[in-house]
């Protein structure tokens, strides 16, 4: 009988401790987190001022950005993640709120050109190198075996002297 009471008391104690722990964790997640300036800046750095274009939110002194930073602080205290907060501002200010657009069409527009240019440049380069090596295997391959800096007499002499003296 005593054992039963002890077991029940132990279960109650464990449940209480677990409950308190879960409660504390919940409270932390739910709204009582301590948010530092660095936390706010971590998010603000990824956003851009809606008025002064190209100025990140963490270093902008306009009224709109001061308000936005206060809002970010509140959102962090409410337990929102960085991504969720950024999504809120993109929704409100449009794609200009972030360093590169998140919308798939705009994102494609932004990245497609430089990537296409790089692919074309690499393809052109490979093609050129291939055609040069093709030409080289033809009679031109017998081009005089030029040693380093042949057309630079001074350098050639230097290197010859190094060889002779070493």
């Amino acid at each position: 009988m005593r054992k039963t009471y002890l077991a029940a008391a132990l279960i109650a104690l464990i449940s209480t401790i677990t409950g308190i722990a879960v409660g504390i964790a919940g409270a932390q997640d739910g709204g009582d987190r301590t948010v530092t300036d660095d936390d706010v800046n971590r998010v603000a750095r990824q956003l851009y001022c809606p008025i002064c274009e190209n100025v990140p939110l963490d270093v902008c002194g306009t009224r709109a950005c001061i308000d936005a930073r206060n809002e970010i602080r509140q959102m962090l205290e409410d337990g929102m993640s960085d991504e969720e907060i950024i999504a809120v501002f993109v929704e409100r200010w449009g794609e200009r709120a972030v360093a590169t657009p998140r919308d798939p069409t705009l994102s494609f527009l932004v990245w497609a050109l430089p990537l296409t240019a790089i692919v074309i440049a690499v393809a052109l380069l490979v093609w050129q190198l291939y055609s040069w090596s093709e030409r080289r295997t033809r009679p031109a391959q017998q081009a005089p075996a030029i040693q380093p800096g042949t057309d630079d007499k001074y350098r050639q002499r230097l290197e010859r002297e190094i060889r002779e003296r070493s």
Partner: peptide, 16 residues
């Protein structure tokens, strides 16, 4: 170009 083509102004920041 983005504003001209889509009407949406975008930012091109350091990550790009």
């Amino acid at each position: 170009f983005s504003e001209l083509l889509t009407g949406e102004k975008i930012t091109m920041g350091p990550p790009y």
